[in-house]
């Protein structure tokens, strides 16, 4: 939590606060927390491939950081708009907003089953965690809907996702 969420968050906030050349600070904060969430989500998929057992660097802690950044990404958006009619309009009319809500909602069961006491009650929690692939795909859609014309970053994330999935299928024989 501290290593993967608090530390980069403190860096990000001070960077945005002290940098006089970021002129749309709120938008910068929203998009950078979104990208951080996606980068962590990519890492959470990638780390198990390395087959290392580490108390700090593991899929769970990185996945949690991804969830916290998505939640923050969502909260800043809500606070910035601060008007129910505009928020509802966005949800109904804009695909990228709807896909963002869906991805975040799907994240909640993963978050809950990350606690040990809930894992004990739900022995099948690993199956629930397959949702990560759906979350990833919907997040890619979320980005696709907001991009105006330059799809380079989206293309990079699609390639990363495909590479990880192919590795998992061929090396582990299971996802």
């Amino acid at each position: 939590m501290i290593a993967f969420f608090i530390t980069p968050l403190v860096f990000l906030i001070s960077y945005i606060y002290f940098n006089n050349e970021i002129f749309n600070k709120t938008n910068y904060f929203i998009s950078s927390t979104g990208y951080l969430a996606l980068i962590y989500l990519t890492l959470a998929l990638f780390i198990p491939l390395l087959k290392i057992r580490n108390v700090v660097i593991n899929a769970r802690s990185i996945g949690l950081a991804s969830f916290y950044f998505s939640l923050l990404h969502f909260l800043i958006y809500i606070i910035d708009n601060n008007d129910l009619s505009i928020l509802l309009d966005d949800l109904i009319l804009r695909n990228y907003i709807l896909s963002g809500y869906i991805a975040l909602l799907l994240f909640i069961p993963m978050y809950l089953t990350s606690f040990n006491f809930i894992k004990e009650k739900i022995p099948n929690w690993k199956k629930i965690h397959k949702i990560i692939y759906a979350i990833y795909l919907i997040t890619l859609l979320h980005i696709y809907f907001i991009i105006k014309a330059d799809y380079l970053y989206l293309f990079i994330f699609i390639m990363l996702f495909l590479t990880i999935v192919i590795f998992k299928v061929f090396l582990n024989k299971k996802i």
Binding site: N24, T26, N27, I86, D89, R94, Y96, F145, K148
Partner: peptide
């Protein structure tokens, strides 16, 4: 607009 609410601006 499909991307941005045009009601307000920053």
């Amino acid at each position: 607009h499909p991307r941005w609410s045009q009601k307000r601006e920053r």
